[in-house]
Write a protein that binds this DNA or RNA. Structure first.
Length: 259
DNA sequence: ATGGTCGTGGGACGA
């Protein structure tokens, strides 16, 4: 089962590019972020026609997450637990049933800039709630994963120019420490479990020729419970689609699971 | 040091 995460940066602008990538990459599951659409505005038929089941958690204008799956999706829930006041659409869960059942969590973690400030406070508190959900997933002892745009650069090797990010909410020490606290509960960060060293990115800013200069960062991650990590047989980044017409500023990151 | 680019929705704001 091939499972990908992809921040598409707006479904209205990206439905064709997304469709083309699905045809080529043939993921069984795609966890999407920044659909920037209400549920009714998501062109579900385009993907249902390709054989995907579609579940969305949208909002007007910003944020929004979705799951496309060629296998049935069960027990869908929306919203990260822990704050009933949080209106932002950044979390969706479902169980995908292939050979085995896998719990999928799709997430769009807050950017947090400017830091310090209220947006950074929201990011850190959201990460605390994420940690609580992560602990519950581990306690279930089932195959599960949390994948999406984490807006976290885990280590200096995950940025082409780490010195440019020292004050940024994506790289501040508090951000990386909060990410490590989740990892250290017992999750496997899929890409780093299989590929070592610098030069692997999932995001290049639209500004200042970042793509042309390969000034990228790696901020899209898949975190696997031990039971899911045992099933992983492959992992990759579809970097090449960043070079196409009207690309997202992110590219897909995927794993292959024996599930 | 500044401005550099997108998407949404038809303003600024978010990134």
């Amino acid at each position: 089962m091939k499972i990908a995460t992809f921040n598409i940066n707006g479904i209205k602008a990206r439905h064709q590019a997304l469709s083309d990538w699905l045809d080529e990459a043939q993921p069984d599951v795609a966890l999407l972020q920044e659909i920037k659409s209400v549920d009714e505005g998501f062109p579900r038929e385009m993907f249902e026609d390709k054989g995907y089941n579609v579940e969305t958690h949208g909002q007007k204008g910003f944020n929004g997450v979705a799951i496309l799956s060629k296998y049935p999706l069960e027990d869908v829930t929306r919203g990260l637990p822990g704050d009933d006041e949080d209106e932002q659409a950044r979390w969706i869960e479902a169980t995908v049933v292939g050979k085995r059942a896998v719990r999928l969590c799709g997430l769009y973690l807050p950017n947090g800039n400017p830091a310090p400030g209220p947006k950074y406070d929201y990011k850190l508190s959201w990460m605390e709630r994420l940690k609580a959900r992560a602990e519950a997933l581990l306690e279930s002892e089932e195959p599960a994963l949390m994948a999406g745009d984490y807006n976290v650069i885990p280590q200096s090797e995950d940025a082409a120019k780490p010195e440019q990010w020292t004050e940024d909410a994506l790289y501040r020490p508090e951000t990386r420490a909060a990410f490590r606290r989740i990892l250290n509960l017992g999750f496997t960060e899929a890409f780093r479990a299989r590929v070592q060293g610098p030069g692997h990115y999932s995001f290049w800013d639209y500004q200042a020729g970042a793509w042309q200069k390969n000034n990228g960062i790696r901020i899209d991650h898949l975190l696997l419970t031990p039971q899911a990590a045992d099933m992983m047989t492959g992992c990759g980044i579809d970097k090449e689609i960043r070079d196409r017409e009207k690309p997202s500023d992110h590219v897909p990151v995927w794993i292959e699971l024996d599930a």
